[in-house]
């Protein structure tokens, strides 16, 4: 398989984390995510930097169902210093007309110009399938410190687990920022590919 086919496959197949689930005030963000369980497209708008509202269409690969969620994310806590930023978010989603189908959870991160640490816990409830939980921890570093408007690269390690398979997997990831675009992908022999694409308007 040629290198271009591999790159395209990587970009089309994988998925993952909730990097920056809230934008700046008035900002709109579109995300595409794909992982073991879900393929999803999520569009959100941030009236202020404290919260975002949005719509997500998520296809569950395991249970073979598709849901449209109305999503709400709230910045519970943020600590800014000259060298770091730490965040704690509450995230939730509910299917309009079917509130039994919902999810909620927390997502936290701490980041400097060189180091990153993040975690997430999510509880998914669905009346048509088994309820389950997902959790992950992510650690990373920047191999070089890039200036504004340049390509930023992160090398990461992620461990994730869910209560459906009860298997945990740890695998490497790469994350790139350039301008308004973020691309993140990783691969695990257990859970296959993760891909996360984000564009901020």
């Amino acid at each position: 398989m040629g290198i271009y086919k591999i790159i395209i496959l990587v970009f089309l197949t994988v998925l993952n984390a909730d990097a920056r689930p809230i934008s700046y005030s008035g900002g709109t963000t579109i995300m595409y995510k794909s992982d073991t369980f879900n393929d999803s497209v999520y569009l959100h708008y941030s009236p202020t930097y404290k919260y975002s509202i949005g719509l997500e269409r998520a296809k569950n690969k395991f249970y073979k169902n598709t849901e449209n969620y109305f999503r709400f994310t709230y910045l519970v806590n943020r600590k800014n210093t000259f060298k770091s930023q730490r965040n704690l978010y509450f995230q939730s989603g509910v299917v309009p007309g079917g509130v039994e189908n919902n999810f909620y959870g927390i997502h936290g991160d701490w980041e400097t110009r060189k180091w990153y640490a993040g975690f997430g816990l999510k509880d998914i409830n669905n009346k048509f399938s088994k309820d389950y939980k997902e959790e992950y921890i992510q650690l990373g570093f920047a191999p070089y410190v890039a200036d504004y408007n340049n390509l930023h690269t992160w090398i990461m390690v992620k461990t994730k687990k869910n209560t459906v398979t009860n298997k945990s997997s740890t695998y490497p990831e790469l994350k790139f920022f350039y301008g308004n675009t973020l691309v993140e992908f990783g691969y695990s022999a257990v859970t296959d590919w993760d891909l996360h694409f984000m564009y901020r308007f």
Binding site: S23, Y24, S25, T81, Q85, T112
Partner: peptide, 18 residues
């Protein structure tokens, strides 16, 4: 302007836009 919390390109981008 001295800014706290401006640790990544992606999170600083809104400042330029604003």
């Amino acid at each position: 302007v001295s800014v706290k919390g401006m640790v990544c390109d992606f999170c600083a981008r809104g400042i330029s836009k604003t």
